[in-house]
Design a protein around this nucleic acid. Sequence first.
DNA 1: CACGCGTGGGA
DNA 2: TTCCCAAGCGT
Length: 314
Amino acid sequence: MPDPYRIWLSEVMLQQTTVAAVKDYFLKFTTLWPTVQDLAAAEDADVMAAWAGLGYYARARNLLKCARVVAAEYMGVFPSDRDSLQTLPGIGPYTSAAISAIAFDLPETVLDGNVERVMARIHAIETPLPTAKPELMALAQALTPLKRAGDYAQAVMDLGATICTPKNPVCGICPWRDGCEGHATGIAPELPRKLAKKAKPTRRGIAYVLRNSNGDWLLETRPEKGLLGGMLGWPGSDWSEAPVAAPPVSTGWEAAGMEVRHTFTHFHLILEVMTARADIDPDIGKFVPHHAFRPSDLPTVMRKVFDVAKHRFE
DNA sequence: CACGCGTGGGA
DNA sequence: TTCCCAAGCGT
């Protein structure tokens, strides 16, 4: 049997994330924390730092919560049934089915974006997502085998990731081409249809990068909830149309000269970067010693700020 | 239940 | 440059 801990970890990392992006993180996590008990015993800050750059940071917070529940209430043994799995933090309909099927060989139907796309195409479903989801689930259930449902699920997901791709599907080499109604009618590449998305607004903000005379960096741990929750970051203004400057100390701030641009799920952000050196005790955050500071512990937008600011201290 | 929540890569 | 995403979940 595959190690349920590793299946769970990989499935959570793969939520809305490509295999290429996950690979190194999976190796890092399994090296640092080989078992769910090891992960459960880890420091929050270490787990968040190890997750930095992978995005959707609520996944990391829930990952740790889940590990601690499994360690404390399940004696370190993951449950095998969907219903129990789905009560755990960060495990929803997709992940519970994937763990049941892949780790425990139970005949659960795994429905992710790949399976939705493959089902929509082979059955030529023109109903747009998310409306079509229940229909696609029923079609996926009808095809799920009683044996090796996990292998089957991974095969369909691999098909969706490599051949039945969102754009430019390679129908010429597809093993399901003959039975594919979408291919027969020539609309496969357009499926699944989706409702139009909202445009992303642009917000602005100011980030403050402060070092003291020891070379330590002023950073804050962001609140648990919300954007970049629980992650390290530079103190700054709010992010809005008209940000209100809020430097952590009153001193001679200088603009770094280059803006940082970053796009989140639902808005574009343009950050002005201000830098200063001062030994004033700040109200916000705390100085991280020079030797303990690793830019790789920061979420990507904060690492971009560092990349712009660091030249000011050379 | 619609929305908030990251990132890097490809077209 | 800009847009589209990719193995979803929580609220």
